[in-house]
Design a protein around this nucleic acid. Structure first.
Lengths: 147, 147
DNA sequence: TCACTTAGTAAACATTTTATTACTATTATC
DNA sequence: GATAATAGTAATAAAATGTTTACTAAGTGA
C-alpha cells in the first residue's frame, strides 16, 4: 500500500524532473507556431501516416482547426497529404523528409544538453543510470502494451 | 562513445514515453487557459514565492503578459501577491491553498492512471521498476545540481 | 433504397497569446 | 546626487487558438 504511494510519487517526480526539458523543446523554434509544432511532434512520435480524425483525437484538438494547421504545414513542405485508398472520404497525412529533419534537429539539442551533464557523473553512476533508464523504458512500454 | 549515444537515445525515448501523460495533464482543465495553467504549474514546482521577473525568465514569457495573467489568477483566488520587503519595486507571488489544490487534483489523475497500469506488472517487475525509478530520480537530480 | 453516421472543409466569431511601446517607482552605480 | 538599469504596469495591435454551425461526399446498416 504505502509502497504504491511512494512509487507513484516518484513517478510524478520524474515527470516534473523532465518537465524543464520539455519546455526547452519549442524555445528556439521560431519557424512553427505551438499548434503546428504540436502536430509535427505527434506525427513524428507515431511514425505512421494518419488521417485528420486520428490526429484530432490524439491531440485533443477539433478537426476544424486541423484543416488549416495541416494546410499550412503542407504548404511549407513539412507534411504531405494523399487520399486514403481504403476510405475515399479520408486523407492520409505524413511527414516529409524536411518535416522529420525539423523535429530531429530539436531533439538533437536536448540530446546534446543531456550528454553535457551526463558526463559529469562518475563511471559507476553512469552505468547505474544507463541500467535504470533502460529498465524503466522497457517496463513502461510493457505497462502500455498490456493496457 | 557508442554507449553515450545509446544512453542519450534511451533518454529521448523516456521523454517521448512520458509525453502522452503530459498532454493529459491539461485536458479536463477547463477552468484555466494554457498560460494560466503554465504559470500555476511552474509555481507549484518551484515551491516558493517568486517575483514576476523570475517567473518571466523561468517560463520564457514576457513580463508584460504576466501582469494580466497573474492579475486574473489572483482575482480567481489561485495566487496571492505581497510586496517584497527587500525590494519595493517587486511583488512576491505565491500559490494559495486553493491554487495548490487545483494543481494537485490534476496530478492525482495522472497518479491514479499510472497505478492502474502499474499493478498489472508482476511483483518482481514492480520492484525493479521502483528501484530503477528511484535511481533515475536521484541521478537526474545530481546531474542538475552539479550543473 | 433510405435514413444515419463519419471525414473533411468552410466561414464567422470570441478568446488567448504575442509583440511593441511607453510610463512610474525603485534600486544600483559612478 | 545625477544617471542608468530594473520591476512592474498599461494600452494597443496583430497573430494564433478555440468554438460553433453548416455543408459535401462517402461509408454504414436496416
Amino acid at each position: 500500500m504505502t509502497m504504491m504511494k511512494e512509487i507513484a510519487e516518484e513517478f510524478v517526480a520524474l515527470i516534473s524532473n523532465l518537465f524543464g526539458r520539455f519546455s526547452e523543446l519549442n524555445k528556439g523554434a521560431t519557424e512553427l507556431s505551438h499548434m503546428q509544432n504540436h502536430v509535427m511532434e505527434f506525427m513524428y512520435m507515431q511514425q505512421r501516416a494518419m488521417n485528420l480524425k486520428e490526429i484530432s483525437k490524439g491531440l485533443n484538438v477539433a478537426k476544424q482547426q486541423l484543416t488549416i494547421i495541416i494546410r499550412n504545414l503542407e504548404a511549407r513542405g513539412y507534411l504531405t497529404k494523399m487520399p486514403d485508398p481504403k476510405d475515399k472520404r479520408a486523407v492520409l497525412v505524413s511527414l516529409t523528409p524536411k518535416g522529420k529533419e525539423v523535429i530531429e534537429k530539436k531533439w538533437t539539442y536536448i540530446y546534446e544538453r543531456f550528454l553535457e551533464k551526463f558526463i559529469r557523473l562518475d563511471e559507476e553512476e553512469q552505468l547505474d543510470f544507463h541500467f535504470a533508464l533502460h529498465k524503466l523504458n522497457v517496463l513502461l512500454k510493457k505497462m502500455e502494451d498490456e493496457a
